[in-house]
Computed example of a mutant assay.
Amino acid sequence: MATSQIETVSTSADKAKLAAAGLLVVGGVAAFYLLGKQDLWLRVVVLLVLLAAAVGAFFTSAQGRELTAFGQDAIKEMRKVVWPTRPEATQMTLYVFAFVVVMALFLWLTDKTLEWVIYGLILGWKH
Rank of each mutant, 00 (worst) to 15 (best):
W108M: 04
V100P: 00
V96T: 07
V96D: 10
V96N: 04
V102Q: 00
T110E: 13
T110Y: 15
D111T: 05
M103N: 08
A89F: 06
V101T: 15
Y95G: 08
V100F: 03
P87I: 11
M92E: 15
L105R: 08
V102R: 01
L109W: 04
V102E: 02
F106I: 06
L105N: 14
E88R: 09
L109Q: 11
W108A: 13
M103F: 06
V96M: 12
A98M: 09
P84Q: 02
T93M: 04
M103H: 02
V96F: 11
L109R: 13
V100G: 01
E88F: 03
K112N: 09
Y95R: 15
V102N: 00
L109Y: 14
L105F: 15
L109E: 13
P84G: 01
V101C: 01
Y95A: 14
F106M: 11
T85D: 13
T113S: 15
W83L: 13
M103G: 00
W108K: 14
F99D: 07
P87C: 04
M92N: 13
M103Q: 11
F99C: 05
M92S: 10
A104Q: 11
T110N: 01
E88M: 06
A89C: 05
T110K: 04
A89H: 09
V96W: 04
V96P: 00
L107K: 12
R86E: 15
L94H: 01
L107W: 03
L105I: 08
F99I: 05
Q91L: 13
T85S: 15
E88K: 10
F99A: 15
L94S: 15
A89V: 03
Q91N: 02
L105E: 09
F97I: 07
T93Y: 01
P87T: 00
A89R: 12
T113R: 01
R86D: 12
E88G: 00
E88S: 07
